[in-house]
Design a protein around this nucleic acid. Structure first.
Length: 392
DNA sequence: TTCATAAAGGCGCGCTTTGT
DNA sequence: ACAAAGCGCGCCTTTATGAA
């Protein structure tokens, strides 16, 4: 509620979120800092906090520093750094991160676990000594081949070798001597997407049967609609499909039709295109049939996971991270129904959980009411889950 | 770079609940 | 009784991924 004039310190937590200068958040923060400076007639203190100043490249750090320095390339002239950009270029060229020290010494405070242990052995939080638990890493192996009861090879063969992927290759069905340069570009990009799509399918297969089933089912539905719209001379793209996927009844189908781009099938090898779309539909249905009977009781990966979970849960609190929300839902549903796990309090959290509810779940975990907490990436930032004894 | 996919966060709208 | 706060939903934005 106060005015910008009263701001003398700006604290940015998880500051690596401001590593990309092309994003709105970077620009907004830059403008905000500028405004504060103007109102104040002097620069406020700026404090950036992050455990991972560099996520991908050196330049992540560069753009965070640019915010702190109001893009002033000559901010450290006195220290012999004539231009920040040049300085980073040089570090990049020489491939030696140690060269960053001159700059980092001017602007950063770094405190590692060992530093605190060595220099502040008596440090306390809320009256009790800080205790850094020993971290022990353990790998658990499982065989996908077993999980999918010998069908993993079949499934991955179908995905990588047998699917025609006609949707991503529509331009290949065009009856012309030579595609235009523009079309040639588009074709290349669509084929690249085909690769991404295949990878995603395999990734979801690896994550859980349920996540995989959902993707396969979704693709079957898409291909059905794609075929139906093509017959009407309209090309259904994924973007619109995903937008309207919930209510694709006949009425809304008419509405969508207006928004779709036209496609003149006379220019295409119609027969072959339709055949291939049908073929993919059949192949995906075949895959679906294979994985449909893998119920939780027959899911070897889930069983192994649960065995381990059960043993660990007897010893202490656990946080389980998973990549896909669908896998989270699958596991959480199964644990809820499993009598063996009845004695444990199990909660799950993802981006779909509203923020107020999220706070409750975390509080309950802190007060040790929860034994097992299942989570997607939402908990990876800004959350201190140190009461947990195990992380999976 | 590009784009599909799936994860996340943020904001505003309109409605309900809460506080004074 | 009225304003403020909270909530759910839809929409928009951001990010990582990987092949070309």
């Amino acid at each position: 509620g106060g005015s910008l004039k009263e701001v003398s310190l700006v604290v940015v937590d998880e500051s690596h979120n401001f590593r990309n200068p092309l994003s709105n958040r970077w620009e907004n923060l830059f403008n905000l800092l500028e405004e504060i400076r103007k109102e104040n007639q002097k620069k406020p203190y700026v404090l950036f906090l992050t455990a991972t100043p560099i996520n991908n490249t050196l330049w992540d750090l560069y753009w965070q520093i640019m915010l702190m320095l109001y893009s002033n390339q000559k901010a450290f002239l006195k220290q012999g750094i004539t231009g920040i950009f040049e300085y980073f270029k040089n570090v990049e060229k020489r491939q030696d991160p140690a060269l960053l020290n001159d700059l980092l010494n001017e602007i950063s405070i770094r405190r590692t676990r060992n530093f605190i242990k060595d220099n502040y052995p008596d440090a306390e939080i809320n009256g009790s000594l800080i205790n850094f638990p020993e971290r022990v890493l353990e790998n658990v192996d499982y065989e996908l081949e077993k999980t999918y009861q010998g069908m993993y090879k079949d499934i991955s063969h179908i995905i990588t070798e047998e699917l025609t992927m006609a949707y991503y290759r529509i331009l290949e069905y065009k009856k012309v001597e030579k595609l235009s340069t523009e079309e040639e570009m588009l074709k290349g990009r669509m084929i690249a997407l085909e690769g991404i799509f295949k990878t995603i399918l395999l990734k979801r297969l690896e994550s859980s049967v349920e996540a995989f089933r959902k993707s396969v089912d979704n693709q079957i539905k898409f291909l059905e609609k794609l075929g139906r719209f093509l017959e009407k001379g309209k090309l259904l793209r994924k973007e619109l499909f995903n937008k309207y996927v919930v209510g694709l009844d006949e009425e809304s189908a008419e509405e969508i039709k207006i928004k779709l781009e036209d496609i003149n099938l006379d220019d295409y090898d119609k027969e072959e295109l339709f055949d291939d779309i049908k073929k993919d539909e059949q192949l995906l249905k075949k895959i679906y049939k294979k994985v449909a009977p893998i119920t939780p009781e027959k899911d070897a990966k889930l069983i192994k996971f649960k065995d381990m979970l059960y043993e660990l849960a007897k010893k202490g609190q656990i946080v389980v991270f998973t990549y896909y929300a669908d896998t989270l839902g699958y596991i959480s549903q199964d644990l809820k129904e499993d009598l063996k796990f009845k004695k444990f309090n199990i909660e799950s959290i993802s981006g779909k959980v509203p923020s107020t509810k999220r706070g409750e779940i975390i509080d309950e975990f802190f007060s040790k009411k929860t034994d097992i907490l299942l989570s997607t990436d939402v908990l990876s930032e800004g959350m201190n889950l140190q009461t947990a004894q195990f992380v999976i």
